[in-house]
């Protein structure tokens, strides 16, 4: 007797097919919605940065610049030259139209340099301080090991705002207000726990035999760390460098308290000062915003793999 599939099997197959189509549709639609949710605000910022001040105040707004211009960026990069470039001098615009570039615009590039210096110093100090500690906790049995881990983790969660008051008083007493040094030290404190945390997870994954073999071959602890462990832990080191860099580049609250002049102001501080100035032109402000956004976003996109592995290092059990 030939076997014919019962009717409800055919029906079941068709239903499954429809189910798959619906599933695809749902995925495509939600993917588009998600992309729009993430990209729309950023595109608006970028689009505004390439508009002239006359265009930017049109109602309703121009979503895509009709006459794209680079003059906002020019203004930033040429600010501080002998002849100040303002919209008034260049295009004869009406100063009353809000076409105004703040006098502090010339501090923008120096503040980027400040941000860069602080971030790099913090990255280097983090590695110097964090790597040995993580190695010790992961590979050496000693009394108080658990306590050290908890201690380091707990310092990570102290809110900055709680540190600010005592820290301000101490820094003022030391005469370190308005120096890059005050930022380097405080940023070190807020980034080191995370560094140690990521590295512990990674070192623990490396076999203990490596450590023993290196020691039998006559390496000191330090040599074992430098010659055996560091080359093997490159991915986690990259993650640490990225996190530390981005945290320092983006930090605002502490910098707000400790910096006063262009000698130590970082990029976020200068940006914030523009936003509270009602005379600053919108197009200029957005261009400055774009400049602050571009470096970290490029770093994040290029090193995506390392960042995701770093972010999840704390979430998976060690």
């Amino acid at each position: 007797m030939p076997i014919t599939p019962p009717v409800d099997t055919i029906d079941y197959r068709r239903r499954q097919k429809i189910g798959r189509i619906v599933q695809r549709l749902v995925i495509v639609v939600s993917a588009i919605v998600l992309a729009a949710y993430i990209l729309a605000p950023v595109s608006w910022l970028v689009s505004s940065a390439f508009q002239t001040e006359t265009e930017i105040v049109s109602i309703p707004p121009h979503w895509i610049p009709e006459e794209p211009t680079l003059r906002n960026f020019e203004a930033i990069f040429s600010a501080g030259n002998d002849e100040p470039v303002t919209y008034e001098t260049r295009s004869g615009a009406d100063p009353a139209a809000g076409d105004f570039i703040p006098s502090t615009a010339e501090n923008l590039l120096p503040s980027m340099a400040n941000s860069l210096i602080v971030s790099i110093l913090v990255v280097i100090l983090n590695l110097l301080v964090g790597v040995p500690a993580a190695y010790a906790i992961a590979k050496i049995r000693f009394w108080g090991r658990n306590a050290s881990v908890y201690f380091i983790l707990i310092t990570r969660v102290i809110p900055d705002i709680a540190l600010v008051v005592p820290f301000f008083l101490v820094i003022r007493k030391l005469g370190m207000l308005d120096t890059l040094g005050s930022l380097v030290i405080t940023y070190l404190a807020i980034t080191v726990p995370f560094t140690v945390f990521i590295l512990i997870q990674y070192f623990e994954g490396l076999p203990d035999e490596l450590d023993k073999a290196a020691r039998v071959d006559g390496c000191s602890r330090l040599q074992a760390l430098i010659k055996v462990f560091l080359p093997l832990s490159l991915p986690s080191l990259v993650a640490v460098v990225l996190f530390t860099f981005l945290t320092s580049w983006n930090e605002f609250l502490l910098a707000l308290m400790f910096t006063q002049t262009s000698a130590s102001q970082t990029l976020p501080i200068l940006l914030a000062s523009f936003t509270s100035d009602f005379t600053v032109s919108f197009s200029f402000l957005n261009a400055a915003g774009v400049l602050a956004v571009v470096p970290p976003v490029i770093v994040a996109i290029v090193f995506e793999r390392y960042i995701v592995s770093g972010l999840t290092a704390g979430a998976v059990k060690g």
Binding site: L39, T275, G289
Partner: peptide
Amino acid sequence: LLVPWAIPYVANALM
């Protein structure tokens, strides 16, 4: 998805 995460909070606020 990493874009908002990477943007500095100040730039986010400005935006």
